[in-house]
Amino acid sequence: MGKNKLQKFEDMSSYPHVFQFPFSVLREKGFEMKGKWNHSFFGNNNPIVLELGCGKGEYAVGLARKYPEKNFIGIDIKGARMWTGARQSLEEKLSNVAFLRTSIELIPFFFANDEVSEIWITFPDPQMKKVRKRLTSTRFMELYRQILTENGIIHLKSDSNFMYTYTCEMIKANHYPVLFCTDDLYNSCIHDDILEIKTFYEQQWLERGLSIKYIKFICENREQLIEPDVDIEYDPYRSFNRSKRSRNKIKDDHKENEL
């Protein structure tokens, strides 16, 4: 582990708005603020919004700036990445944002029923070969339902056509109400300040000429969820691979399309 990472971890341990709990502690003692985030940390009754896989925390911080009437929590297992947003929000004295370092699978340990009003999933690994690891799979929908309010909203932004198509099929199979859906966000008719916030990786995808997909839907309660049984073409590149090789492949694909 590099010196820079060690310093970031040391910083994070001292930040009052960053929470880090090993699973062993959760299993033995639980999380004392579960169901009490508004009262014990934020000091208000404003809606709570999560950013899952928050990375550097661009959405959590950006949304907190725009919407002081809501509370935002960025969640990721990568503490070194999260440090950027945690430090920035501390320097800006944003009182409506926090960060939680944990695996997304463990969020029911940290939030009670009906405690969360919205969830943002921004540019997740599409997990093309592992259904159970997709953050919009029915497995994760069941986890989200444990903490979301009755009409809790889920937002997905992705550069992956595979992830977008899979999520559309999952929504269709379970009859979730769709509030907005587009496979080319920045050439769509939507005008929303929220969507002007761009993550570090989103900027990279746009620079490479990739279209950004966006879905906003209501995660209603269902007695039983249906996993879609469809064949979806894999992406021609790995969404999370940012190597020169990937860039060249995308450029070559564009050249072929132009011929």
Rank of each mutant, 00 (worst) to 15 (best):
E207Y: 01
K216P: 06
N221S: 09
L206I: 14
Y214L: 03
I226G: 03
Q203M: 06
Q204F: 13
N221G: 11
R242Y: 11
F240D: 13
R222A: 06
I212D: 09
F200D: 14
E227D: 08
I212A: 03
Q204I: 13
E207M: 07
Q204E: 11
R245T: 13
P236E: 13
D235G: 01
I232G: 02
K244A: 11
S211G: 06
L206T: 00
G209K: 11
Q224W: 05
L225T: 10
L206D: 07
E233Y: 00
Y237C: 01
F240Q: 09
I232D: 00
L206P: 03
R238K: 14
I212K: 08
P228I: 02
L225A: 04
F200S: 11
S243M: 01
R222L: 14
P228E: 03
Y234P: 01
I226A: 03
L206G: 07
D231E: 14
E223F: 05
Q204G: 11
E227I: 00
E207C: 02
S243R: 07
C219I: 10
I212R: 02
D231F: 12
E202Q: 07
E207T: 05
S243W: 04
L206F: 07
L210K: 15
R222Y: 06
S243L: 04
Q224G: 01
Q203R: 12
E233D: 08
Q224T: 07
K216G: 03
R238E: 12
E220G: 15
S239E: 02
I226N: 07
D235A: 01
R242S: 08
N221H: 15
R242Q: 09
D229Q: 13
Y201S: 04
R222P: 01
R242T: 13
Y237F: 14
L210H: 08
S239G: 07
K244W: 08
P236H: 11
R245I: 13
L206V: 03
S243D: 01
R238V: 10
Y214C: 01
K213H: 14
K213Y: 10
K244N: 08
I212M: 14
Y234M: 08
P228V: 04
Y201P: 01
L225D: 00
F240L: 05
R242H: 12
F217L: 07
E207N: 12
F217S: 02
K216R: 15
R245F: 15
S243C: 04
Q224Y: 05
Q224K: 10
E227C: 08
Q203S: 10
D229T: 11
E223V: 05
L225Y: 13
S246D: 12
N221D: 12
E220A: 15
K216H: 08
S246Y: 06
R242P: 01
S246G: 13
P228M: 02
E223A: 09
E227K: 09
L210P: 09
W205R: 08
Y214K: 06
L206A: 07
E233V: 09
Y201N: 05
E220Y: 08
S243Y: 00
D235H: 00
Q204V: 13
I226K: 10
I232R: 03
I226M: 02
R238F: 08
S246M: 15
S243T: 06
K213N: 10
E227A: 10
E220R: 13
L225K: 04
E223I: 05
Y237L: 06
S211N: 11
F200I: 15
R208N: 15
S243Q: 03
Q224L: 11
I226Q: 07
